[in-house]
Design a protein around this nucleic acid. Sequence first.
DNA 1: ATTATTATATACCTATTGGTATATTTTTAT
DNA 2: ATAAAAATATACCAATAGGTATATAATAAT
Lengths: 198, 198
Amino acid sequence: MLTKAEITSQYILDTVAPIFNQNGYAATSLKDITEATGLTKGAIYGNFENKERLAIEAFRFTVKKLLMEISKHMSQSDSPKQKLFLLSDFYRNYYDYSKRLGGCPILNIGVDANNQNALLLKKVRQVIEKIQDKIAALIEDGIEVRELSSEINAMHYAKRIDSMLQGAIFMTYTMNDDFYLKDSADQIDQMIIEEMSY
Amino acid sequence: MLTKAEITSQYILDTVAPIFNQNGYAATSLKDITEATGLTKGAIYGNFENKERLAIEAFRFTVKKLLMEISKHMSQSDSPKQKLFLLSDFYRNYYDYSKRLGGCPILNIGVDANNQNALLLKKVRQVIEKIQDKIAALIEDGIEVRELSSEINAMHYAKRIDSMLQGAIFMTYTMNDDFYLKDSADQIDQMIIEEMSY
DNA sequence: ATTATTATATACCTATTGGTATATTTTTAT
DNA sequence: ATAAAAATATACCAATAGGTATATAATAAT
């Protein structure tokens, strides 16, 4: 059974995560947090050590949600190559989806934390590494089952795909135009077919 | 002849621009500004209306420097196609270069300003549009002199190149690894040769 | 050199910042 | 139902925020 504090903690994270994600760490005040949650500082500080700890937990909370959604989308196929297509396909609708999270947590917190919050930056790096490892593993699987060419460097392409997607996310948000996400998904698909396959 | 205030204004912008670029708008305090410049609030507010105005001018200052550096690098050739190669080549060393600016102003201020400062975001958008227009014009030139295929959509590829570069910049900074910039430059070169040329 | 103007420094303002000690209320286990 | 424990609210703190009125100093024109 969940204790009261656990329920409250989850509620705080659920409420506060999009705010941190949207505003950034420095631009999110304790007042923003208490107003959004309807709780007082006592309740916040009873559940989280300080603002930094709360921001870190909020980031983890959002990323967990995001990664689960991606996994779910990719589970539609068992073929590694098809899973790659499903990955790019997930990002076709990422603008709409990620708005609910307050934007892309990796992009927003990554830029925000750089030179500002070493701990938060470390968490972002870990998430990026995890994602790239997963993509690389998928490509390796694809090579093994002969869906993908054994000539290609898996991690190299994993980084390329990740980098292209992050660029598209940045451009889509900044220009408020999801052409970038749609187009980069197409570009990745083309790359899978023309460069990564036999 | 330059008036005292003009010299001081330029000095303030030169000193403060990298700070805003690194920290973001909210995380840069007037204290940061007075300490870095060695001036008092009186001097700052005598030259700039308020913090927002200063941030906007600082962004313009940095972007101007950056765009001039890119132009300079691209002036090494007159051929549109070669100019495109020079563009991607500029970004090969962009990590080192942009560190002096306090990071990439378009990425940093773009993310920072989103949902936070409408005026600043507008300025970022204008800069992005300007850059993409220039790249697209270059591609059109390339088509005209028959260096590039007339089949391609110039603005489409301009956006693609821009998006790929921004992604690489984000990844390079966040992971502290300029593989991403080097690789995306290679990828763009390959794209020019294999997709955009005859 | 003196004056008028411009630029900078000083001192101060209110509001807000993150954070905490303590009082009060709400849960939980008996 | 009651007591012990846990969770939340209240009231407060010092420090800092952006900004301004005014005094002082530096510059520019005569």
